[in-house]
Design a binder for these strands. Structure first.
Length: 818
RNA sequence: GCUCGGGUGGCGAAAUCGGUAGACGCGAGGGACUUAAAAUCCCUUGGGACAUACUCCCAUGCGGGUUCGAUCCCCGCCCCGAGCACCA
């Protein structure tokens, strides 16, 4: 054990040299394996996870570092609290982003990505994260995506993967399929060309089967409320009824049109029906006289791209010439076709209730269809004309609704469905807006979907023993006008023997969505190194679910939902004991710079290397955590970093000249324990900015006046700052004679008795306005407080006559109402 | 349009349960040290009134309300950010 450093000559202060200290400790951590976790022998496992980055060519973004540092602090804190913390980090390196960049710079992603990863690794190590690098991974490694392909086969086995025709976004200029995220206002993000729609055969996962569970479980997990809300909205549960309308088909015979509505109470106001243009019943319902118009309309809407259709507001449509019977009114109502009804949602057909739905009102006005009031509020009656749709239902009462007149909206819903269900024309149902997950990508840079098509055997899964289906190195990976994957140009790759019959088959040439790579990576980390299984049973049981997950809220409805879905599927297959992967999730905020968004084009991106070089990683980390509330983000201002650096300078200086004799100052010790309490409370709730502020405050107290701080006043501060500034903490810990790593020491114990103040400042208000502050004993009672307050001349001045009322908040405030 | 955040000094921000508005930091001003500068250290710093002090008034996007007391709760608006968007 080293002796505490005691120096006589303080005139030449030892300079704090972050560069040297950080290099030294990063080397020692590496040599001693300080950041490695013994996963097998850990007694109190704590898995802390951050969303893994996409390793871009530009290098680590300061936003990544902001996120990672917040996670690292939490992990280091848990370690000091006695947990065995596992903090892995890997790379999400497949995907269109990497591919487009590779195309732009004319290099191959297989060359580019390893270079980017090693640059990222260098930057991440430099920033002092407590990452166990023995467990890193990249989604692009065959020994990782082997298991991504395996996962696909498991879903296929469970009947949760299927193939169907679906529309994709197509950019005619880039000659490529685009992800939805790359279509901005109907235009290709890169070339600004209008995006077209193409119909292609695609693989889907039945995530919509899991909608009820994905929704219900949200009540049981400790996640940021904003994230849960986003998922709830995305899953979009709607309670209502499917109602059947009968109509005569043009080919003779009756047919039944099922519509979905959340407002069965308004059925007496349903004056027409609308089918989506793709609805299978449209053909059979279109009269000869109308066929031309209807066909033309369907053709027109088919050509329209997804975006125009979604954002267009002017209602269009065509009349089929047929009529259906409203089961409530028994009246004949016309059947229309319009693209404001979506085939993908509900039953692809609706009943038009123009009086009580804004869109139906617009449609009925446009095509002169009857508008009937069937609900009125407190100020209307059955005959009050409608100038817009009346959608208020809280206070609504049914009118013009036959036997249901006078019912409230809620009672009407129940009663009408009940009556109609007796004749079999209504069923209570729940619909979700969550669609199945399309995982096919007609691109190169992803894991090939492990399927072989055979003329005699059909769709054949690649046997698990043959995995991985290795992504071949090809030069011409640029997508072309054909709308098929670049891999489809390589017969030598896709032409293979059918695993079942041995005849010539053809590989699936699409690759899977990047989001599938990231939907299970947290299961892999603990088992990295074992290539025989995707995740080891025992180690998974010990380490999962993830204790703490931190990431950006932009993934609230994509990655976070997919990861939950995949976990549930594996749970149902008996491979996992839990069905929710992340016990606690917190969304971090985003940082901007000098009030503006950071962007490449604006040239205002913070390069972490330069800042770390200049200020040191510790000061940079501490500043990132100090600049704003972690869960809300903040404004990165270059001029402000000096403040956190100064704090570390002072900390370093204070630790150089500590006195080891005599007793510590009592009021300093009181402040110290108040600081311990504050920091211990702030870190778990990710209130890092206030934790740093509290330590700065303590530093100000410690340095007040011309005194040499006592060892006992300084040493407990070292573990306290260590999560934020790990290198300087290790250095000071060593200097102070600590054994081993500071991270294997203990978090300082808060002593309530030491922190307690004897006297307090009691705020005295008169009529709710602060008039004075008096110093009194901590446990002063009401009478004594009143007496002391009235003795104050300023208070006395405002209290005229006997007080009407006294409000006394012990230890805080006294309010005299005069 | 809907949903979720947010709006507080010159700036980044605090205020954990309805109880001292502006902690902490930056910047700015003044001072000490220095031949000088940097660094460091000390003091001041929301706005206004008063010669000064004591003190008082105003102030948390805007307008109301509840309360002894509102940055915080309620009602009605405005603005900024993010996400979703014809979801019946």
């Amino acid at each position: 054990m080293a002796n505490p450093v005691i120096r006589d000559d303080l005139s030449e202060p030892i300079q704090y040299d972050p560069g040297a200290i950080e290099r030294k400790w990063q080397r020692i951590w590496q040599e001693r394996g300080t950041n490695n976790t013994d996963l097998q022998r850990a007694q109190r496992p704590f898995y802390t996870l951050m969303m893994f980055p996409y390793p871009s060519a530009e290098g680590l973004h300061v936003g990544n570092l902001f996120a990672f540092t917040g996670n690292d602090i939490y992990g280091r804190f848990q370690r000091l609290m006695g947990h065995n913390v596992f903090e892995p980090l890997g790379y999400d390196a497949f995907g269109i982003h990497s591919e487009n960049y590779a195309l732009k710079v004319g290099q191959h992603p297989m060359d580019l990505i390893p270079r980017n990863i090693s640059n990222f690794r260098r930057q991440l190590e430099r920033s002092g994260l407590m990452v166990d690098w023995r467990h890193t991974l990249s989604t692009t490694e065959p020994n990782y995506y082997k298991w991504t392909q395996w996962l696909f086969l498991q879903l296929l086995k469970q009947g949760l993967a299927y193939k169907k025709q679906a529309a994709v976004n197509w950019c005619p200029d880039c000659k490529t399929v685009l992800a939805n995220e790359q279509v901005v206002a109907g235009l290709c993000e890169r070339s600004k060309t209008p995006v077209e729609q193409r119909l292609l055969e695609q693989w889907f996962f039945r995530i919509s089967d899991y909608a009820p569970r994905l929704l219900e479980n949200l009540d049981r997990i400790d996640w940021s409320e904003t994230t849960k809300t986003a998922q709830r909205n995305w899953i979009g549960r709607s309670e209502g009824a499917d109602i059947s309308f009968k109509a005569d088909s043009v080919t003779g015979g009756r047919c039944e049109i099922r519509v979905f509505t959340t407002r069965p109470d308004t059925i007496y106001g349903a004056t027409y029906l609308v089918l989506a243009p793709e609805h299978p019943l449209v053909d059979g319902l279109t009269k000869v006289t109308e066929r031309k118009k209807v066909d033309a309309y369907r053709e027109k809407t088919k050509k329209q791209d997804i975006i125009t259709r979604k954002t267009g507001t002017d209602k269009t449509g065509a009349f089929t010439g047929s009529y259906a019977v409203n089961p409530a009114t028994r009246k004949q109502i016309p059947i229309w076709v319009s693209d404001y009804v979506l085939m993908e949602y509900g039953t692809g057909a609706i009943m038009g209730v123009p009086g009580h739905d804004a869109r139906d009102f617009e449609f009925a006005t446009r095509f002169d269809l009857p508008i009937v009031r069937v609900v009125c509020g407190e100020r209307e009656d059955a005959n009050t004309p409608l100038t817009s749709a009346f959608t208020e239902c809280e206070s609504g009462t049914l009118v013009n609704s036959g036997e249901f007149d006078g019912y409230s909206v809620d009672a009407g819903k129940r009663a009408i469905v009940e009556v109609l269900s007796k004749s079999g024309s209504a069923t209570q149902v729940v619909h979700f807006r969550l669609h199945d997950w399309c995982i096919s990508r007609q691109r190169y840079w992803g894991p090939p979907i492990p399927i072989i098509y055979c003329e005699s055997c059909g769709t054949v899964p690649v046997p698990e023993g043959d995995l991985p289906v290795v992504l071949p190195f090809i030069e011409d990976f640029k997508p072309d006008d054909s709308g098929i994957s670049p891999l489809a140009r390589h017969e030598e790759w896709y032409r293979v023997a059918c695993p079942k019959c041995g005849k010539t088959g053809r590989r699936e040439t699409d690759v899977s969505d990047t989001f599938l790579d990231s939907a299970w990576y947290f299961l892999r980390y603990p088992s990295v190194g074992n290539d025989d299984v995707p995740f080891e049973r025992d180690i998974t049981k010990k380490w999962l679910p993830v204790n703490s997950y931190i990431g950006g809220n932009e993934h609230a409805v994509l990655h976070l939902l997919y990861a939950r879905f995949i976990t549930m599927v594996l749970h149902d297959a008996g491979m996992l004991e839990f069905e929710e992967p992340f016990t606690r999730f917190r969304a971090h905020g985003h940082i901007i710079r000098e009030g503006a968004k950071m962007s490449k084009t604006q040239g205002n991106i913070v390069n972490p290397d330069e800042y770390i070089e200049h200020w040191g990683a510790d000061a940079f980390r501490t500043y990132l955590m100090f600049l704003g509330p972690y869960e809300q983000g903040g404004d990165f201002r270059d001029a402000s970093i000096s403040g956190t650096r100064r704090f570390l300078d002072r900390l370093f200086a204070s630790a150089q000249g500590m006195s080891t004799t005599g007793m510590p100052d009592q009021s300093v010790m009181r402040k110290l324990h108040q600081t311990i309490r504050k920091v211990s409370e702030d870190i778990p709730r990710l209130s890092y900015n206030t934790a740093v502020a509290a330590m700065m405050e303590y530093m100000n107290v410690l340095r007040k006046g011309e005194r040499t701080p006592h060892r006992d006043e300084v040493v407990p501060l070292i573990p306290l700052v260590s999560p934020f500034a790990p290198h300087i903490a290790e250095e000071l810990w060593e200097q102070a004679g600590g054994t081993g790593s500071v991270f294997d020491s203990a978090w300082p114990q808060f002593d309530a008795a030491l922190a307690a103040e004897d006297s307090i400042e009691l705020v005295v208000q008169v009529n709710g306005r602060v008039r004075s502050r008096i110093t009194v004993s901590r446990d002063i009672n009401e009478e004594a407080a009143i007496a002391a307050a009235l003795a104050d001349p300023v208070v006395a001045k405002f209290v005229i006559g006997a007080p009407k009322k006294i409000v006394f908040v012990p230890g805080r405030l006294l309010n005299i109402v005069a």
